[in-house]
């Protein structure tokens, strides 16, 4: 059964802040959903392989031929912050 600490742990993994109220509410909702989901635990799945790709297709590999790039202006056009032709972010190690 998922508890509040589990919810906060996965929220951290998912880089999602939850307020206290959200964490409380989500814990209840997730527990209910997972209870329903856990019905798959009742099935006998011995020897059943997993399906990752439902339509059996061969991967059509891409020939190694260069295509056009975006202009730097286009690449940076939607960025929240830029500097020196790059995307500006808070330093990963600060704080």
């Amino acid at each position: 059964m998922i508890d509040r600490d589990d919810v906060l742990h996965v929220a951290r993994l998912a880089r999602l802040r939850l307020s206290d109220a959200e964490a409380d509410r989500m814990t209840g909702e997730l527990a209910k959903i997972l209870e329903h989901v856990e019905r798959i635990g009742e099935l006998d799945l011995d020897g059943v392989p997993p399906t990752a790709h439902v339509v059996a297709v061969e991967h059509e590999l891409r020939p190694d031929v260069p295509g056009p790039c975006l202009s730097r202006e286009a690449a940076l056009a939607q960025a929240p912050a830029t500097q020196d032709g790059g995307f500006l972010v808070p330093s990963p190690q600060a704080g």
């Binding site: 891409r62 190694d64 031929v65 260069p66 295509g67 056009p68 790039c69 975006l70 202009s71 730097r72 690449a75 940076l76 020196d84 032709g85 790059g86 995307f87």
Partner: peptide
């Protein structure tokens, strides 16, 4: 040392100005 990137057709970069060897896929 392929001509293009692993999963898109951008040419590999050899010291070009920043963000001039990108496309929607590798961004």
């Amino acid at each position: 040392s392929t001509r293009t990137k692993m999963f898109c057709a951008c040419p590999l970069s050899f010291g070009e100005p920043p963000n001039t060897r990108t496309c929607p896929v590798c961004l």
